[in-house]
Simulated assay, not measured.
Amino acid sequence: MFGPPPPVPAVSLKDFDARKDDITNELVEAAETAGFFTLIDHGITIDEINAQFALSEQYFDLPHEVKGRIPHDIKTNNGWEYKSQIRQSTGTADQKESFWIRRDSEWPTDNEVSNFRDTTKRFMGKCEEISRKVLACFSVALGFPEDHLNEAMDVEAADNLTQMRLIHYMASENSLGTWRAGNHTDVGCLTLLFQRDGEDGLEICPGRESHNDHAIGDTFHPLPAVTGPIVVNIGDMLMAWSDDRLKANFHRVRAKDVGKSPDRYSIAYFNTGRKNVIMQGPLKKYPPITCGEYFLEKTETQFGGTFRRQPVNATARA
């Protein structure tokens, strides 16, 4: 079922230092309602975004046995996974493959994808800069010191859980609205999502009141894919950390009802609290818990705690 689209405002980061108060107000208003907003004037050029997507396509076009050289590790959550995420909401595997990366991850070689590591690390660095600005705004709005959330998500720390994920949804014929990614919320704090023109499918469902609320509404709204603006959404961890003030709402990626759904590529940067940091909201609505414990609890809720191990056909291509 679809209804009138909720407001998903575009927030400009232009002149950030001079406009910080106004930007904070815009971010908080969006986070308290839709739980989604887009960022413009954020400092990453269209050329840089397209270059990162080009590398992603090159990587996913590699044979399975090459991508499988860096298999997904359920302990670190890094590496390549193929149709291995089974959502509790659907009972079926998401129709996609992905490559999870941290700063200290193992990388494809230049022989596999030229300049992958250097270009991707620069891109991640820009995502870090943008995230720091947004998280500083939310820290102040919640009554914390300005650096509170950024220190909790310090990517230089040994226990950091922040990751980037390259995602490829495979093309499908006559999918009749099946789930390329089933209904879910994000487990971490803040997600930056990059999409490309024409590769639609993302749908959002506002209305969640508690980070423990598992009920999914029946009114989803498409959020068209556009190259340039960054789609940002609140995750469960930040919803709990804000005493449910900032909303982590359900979303999904849906195939077309009729005809062929083309390949869809997206890039997600997941800001997540460090494993050993203790999180608790300013109102202390919930008891203190480490970010690592919270992450595991929410992962178990969504996936039963693990990615399903599925044998890969070495001769297949995604």
Results as ranks from 00 to 15, higher is better:
Ser175Val: 14
Val8Glu: 06
Gly305Ser: 06
Val11Gln: 06
Ser105Leu: 12
His211Ile: 06
Glu57Asn: 04
Arg252Asp: 01
Phe220Asp: 02
Val258Asn: 03
Cys127Ile: 04
Leu202Pro: 01
Leu13Phe: 00
Asn276Ala: 11
Ile130Glu: 05
Val113Ile: 09
Thr162Gly: 11
Asn25Trp: 01
Tyr294Lys: 12
Leu246Trp: 02
Val187Gln: 07
Asp213Glu: 11
Val253His: 00
Ser105Phe: 05
Leu161Asp: 12
Asp159Arg: 07
Lys20Ala: 15
Arg252Cys: 02
Glu65Arg: 14
Arg254Ile: 13
Leu296Pro: 05
Ser172Leu: 14
Asp200Val: 04
Pro108Ile: 15
Asn174Val: 06
Pro311Lys: 00
Glu97Asp: 14
Arg165Gly: 02
Glu81Val: 10
Gln95Asp: 10
Glu106Gln: 15
Pro206Gln: 11
Phe116Met: 14
Val28Trp: 03
Pro222Ser: 05
Glu81Asp: 15
Ala215Thr: 15
Val231Lys: 04
Asn313Asp: 15
Pro6Trp: 00
Leu190Ile: 04
Leu39Pro: 05
Lys20Thr: 12
Thr306Trp: 06
Gln95Pro: 01
Val258Gly: 02
Gln195Met: 07
Asp159Val: 13
Gln95Leu: 13
Gly43Cys: 04
Asn77Ile: 15
Leu238Gly: 07
Val155Pro: 13
Trp179Asn: 04
Thr109His: 02
Val134His: 01
Asp213Trp: 01
Ser105Arg: 02
Gly305Arg: 04
Pro145Asp: 14
Ser175Met: 14
Thr227Val: 08
Lys126Tyr: 03
Ile216Asp: 05
Lys126Ile: 09
Gln52Arg: 15
Arg180Phe: 04
Gly198Ala: 13
Ala248Met: 12
Phe123Asn: 02
Leu202Ala: 02
Thr178Asp: 14
Asp47Gln: 10
Arg69Lys: 15
Glu156Pro: 10
Asp110Gln: 07
Asn78Asp: 14
Pro262Tyr: 00
Ala181Phe: 03
Glu128Ile: 11
Phe220Gln: 08
Ser131Lys: 03
Ile74Tyr: 02
Ala215Pro: 00
Leu238Lys: 03
Pro7Thr: 11
Lys247Asp: 04
Lys260Gln: 15
Pro288Leu: 07
Thr45Asp: 08
Asp197Met: 09
Val11Leu: 08
Tyr59Asn: 01
Arg317Met: 12
Leu238Thr: 04
Asp244Ile: 03
Asn313His: 07
Thr306Ala: 09
Lys298Gln: 11
Asp104Met: 04
Gln88Arg: 07
Asp47Cys: 06
Arg132His: 13
Ala316Val: 02
Trp100Thr: 08
Tyr265Ile: 00
Gly217Val: 05
Pro108Met: 15
Ala171Ile: 10
Asp154Asn: 13
Asp147Met: 11
Met124Trp: 01
Ser210Cys: 07
Gly207Ile: 09
Gly68Gln: 05
Thr33Ile: 10
